[in-house]
């Protein structure tokens, strides 16, 4: 239990160990720890940035969607309007066509009536002439009465 040279030897050993710890071990240790802290901090910041980006993207998507919906409404509205317009146009066209056909038919009918009248007039004239011929066989000369018969034909 005597104090002896061991004291000094142990003191020197202790000093050397402290020196190694202070000069080499600890600085390397704290450098690694600081690097890791930095890495973690960067990672956290990147994560936060990503979260914010995602949020912004979500908002933008929402806006786009709303705008698209609005646009769709517009398109549908204009299509409906156009549809109604086209229907109206078609109706008008149909009506015009119908009127035209009707007019043509009327004209046709008028023409046929006129034709029939003409034919009838001819036939009535010839009938009248033949009737009169039969009555006036002997004394009536068609040549002398032609002027009279023509006037009669026109009156019918």
């Amino acid at each position: 239990m005597n104090l002896n040279l061991t004291l000094i030897a142990q003191g020197i050993a202790f000093a050397i160990f402290i020196l190694i710890s202070v000069k080499f071990v600890w600085p390397m240790f704290s450098r690694k720890i600081e690097e890791r802290q930095k890495t973690i901090a960067d990672g956290l910041a990147a994560g936060e940035q990503g979260r914010r980006d995602l949020e912004a993207a979500g908002k933008r998507a929402h806006e786009e969607l709303a705008r698209a919906r609005e646009r769709v409404g517009e398109i549908i509205g204009s299509a409906e309007k156009r549809d109604a317009q086209m229907l109206e146009e078609a109706k008008a066209a149909a009506r015009a066509e119908a009127e035209r056909i009707l007019a043509a038919a009327k004209a046709d009918i008028d023409q046929q009536i006129a034709h029939a009248k003409e034919t009838l007039r001819e036939q009535v004239a010839s009938l009248a002439v033949s009737g009169a011929e039969k009555i006036l066989r002997r004394e009536v000369n068609p040549e002398t009465h032609a002027e009279l018969l023509g006037r009669l034909k026109r009156e019918i």
Binding site: N2, Q10, I20, M28, K32, T39
Partner: peptide
């Protein structure tokens, strides 16, 4: 007088302990 057993054991243990720390810290990754 030098207590050679004390000195050898303690220095050996110090080398093992501090050396272990040094060895690990040298190969440490962040």
């Amino acid at each position: 007088v030098l207590n050679i057993d004390t000195v050898l054991t303690s220095v050996g243990l110090g080398i093992i302990g501090i050396g272990f720390l040094w060895w690990v810290v040298r190969g440490a990754t962040s």
